[in-house]
Design a protein around this nucleic acid. Sequence first.
DNA 1: GCTTTGACTTCAAGTACTTGAAGTTCCTAC
DNA 2: GTAGGAACTTCAAGTACTTGAAGTCAAAGC
Lengths: 152, 152
Amino acid sequence: MSTGTTQHTYTIKEASALTGLPASTLRYYESIGVIAPIPRGASSKHRMYDEDDLDQLLWIACLAATGMAVSDMRKYVANGQRGPSAASEQIELLTVQQQRLAIEAEQVALRQRYVRIKLDFWHATEAGDTERAELLSGEARVLADELKQIKK
Amino acid sequence: MSTGTTQHTYTIKEASALTGLPASTLRYYESIGVIAPIPRGASSKHRMYDEDDLDQLLWIACLAATGMAVSDMRKYVANGQRGPSAASEQIELLTVQQQRLAIEAEQVALRQRYVRIKLDFWHATEAGDTERAELLSGEARVLADELKQIKK
DNA sequence: GCTTTGACTTCAAGTACTTGAAGTTCCTAC
DNA sequence: GTAGGAACTTCAAGTACTTGAAGTCAAAGC
């Protein structure tokens, strides 16, 4: 991205929300040298991320999502790599990430349904409605299969 | 479930394939008491899983997928053994999971929007539409600001 | 029966974070 | 401008697995 003249900065929490990497992970990656030290506020110790940092973090998040070991990420970044520079490469990277997020959203929705059913099951059990409880435990099984399928 | 007369047994590798939990994780869960010790072969130390074990593991895999802590899984499984009397405790554990998943869904949605903006930016850049690209480069900051507003 | 190959075993150490404590710093509100 | 709370900081310890080493067991081929 890098307009160079960007004056916008982001807190660690914002960087976390946009990239999907927990704040604790951002600090961790910095501490072990996966990313360069982030500049701090004028009179504080608080990290201030700019657009370029966010771009790099999004790239790192993609690498992490593919299961790359941190030692390998470190090597990549140490070799001066800050992510793809060409538009076409960025588009390719981000398109894959978009697909990953779509799958993740689907998975979360499915897990929500699973927990919902289990909750209903225990509510029915609590109320002594054995018939409904049995029906629900069957549904949970079907869903468990679905959950397993998507994972692959 | 559980005819009681089941003859068929499974190796740890088969159990792993069927439940989606790595063999190392199956041993780990057993070692820390998330699941009861699995019976071993007549003249060996090899674990032999039966259908009931697989049912339990499948459903533990679902709990793990929702991000439940192993200490809570242990409680949950122990409660399950206790039957209907544990209903209120199970409901409590699952309600926490439900809330966690609702937050996660929101977070994924935000990240999807962020990636969408980045993708649009690069498409505009590739097409030489500098005006649109510049407009979009400010959008990320708007998204981060929105994050703060939502909380209040 | 014997041997080899490969899957299994335990246990210790490693990995990638995550959480908690204790102490700053920023922001909002009076 | 100052009081209070939320958000940040570091650092140490904890968590949830995973991997590797060294040894045991089982099915297949000779």
